[in-house]
Amino acid sequence: MAEQDIIRRSGTTDITPASQARVGGVKKVAKLFDATKCNGCKACQVACSEWNDLREEVGEFSGSYQNPPSLSPECWTLMKYNEIEDAGKLRWQFTHSACMHCADPACLKACSTAGAIIQRANGTVDFDSDKCIGCGYCASACPFDIPKISAKDNKAYKCTLCSDRTAVGLEPSCVKTCTTGALRYGTREDMLFYAEKRVEELKARGYKNAGLYNPEGVGGTAMMMIFHDINDPESYYMPKDPQVPMATEIRQDWLKPLGTAGLIATAAFALMHRITVGRNIVEEDQPGYIDAAAEKEEDSK
């Protein structure tokens, strides 16, 4: 199948980009997680494992309902529980944790393999397990700590935003199952519009710092979040200012071109040197730097 909705692929130079023929008729989509509506029921986590046929091992109780403790190759959506002390009262904050589908994905930039990570015309980011070699560059580059490498098959896994469902007009399975309406899916435009209204509503209800988490450092994300307090995303286990990491940028934007130039320059210089200076051969009778008398004496030994 020719996947013409792939607009960006990893390990591919700008000279030979992914298919660019489409003119933008495919609308960008977004999943919106409204933390102010979430009650932590985990239906999204279960729906994800159901639809994607994943069964993470049942772990041990460690004082939190959060289980497994983190995302894994067998757990692509995780309900995170954070206990917050607020004016002497205990309050729970829930985070629907899964791939953020960045507009400028660090994983795609870091990837070692052509086409193993792709970005679709609708803005979502997907992994092609068939191509993946399991180097883990995506896992170390992701500012949200999302991709996980499986020790079973040496491949990276993460939420696909149910690309197999969205391709045929369905919403992601987590959204389909959400019990409170905290998860929504639609065009990015619609989600931004809805979020704006919802944030206004929250502000009117007294949540003065309510806001939309759509971090600019990664070009915005196709999973956006509404928080009670946008100034403190860390209380939702989300980074304050996620970026494509500096080490990834240096490696891909600086080391690669400079290193290549250095290599070619050295090889070219060596070749020119060999051709211009010529062979360096030892002549049979060459006296070298020891004077003739000493040489004679030495040779006579």
Binding site: A139, S140, A141, C142, N154, A247, R251, L255, G262
Partner: peptide, 25 residues
């Protein structure tokens, strides 16, 4: 991966990758 990298912070692994590549070049 997948043996030792999960024991380290993602950013540590990322810097290690950069240094590894730079040394290789």
């Amino acid at each position: 991966q997948p043996y030792f990298a999960p024991m380290f912070e993602a950013s540590t692994v990322n810097w290690a990758t950069l240094i590894h590549a730079a040394c290789a070049i």
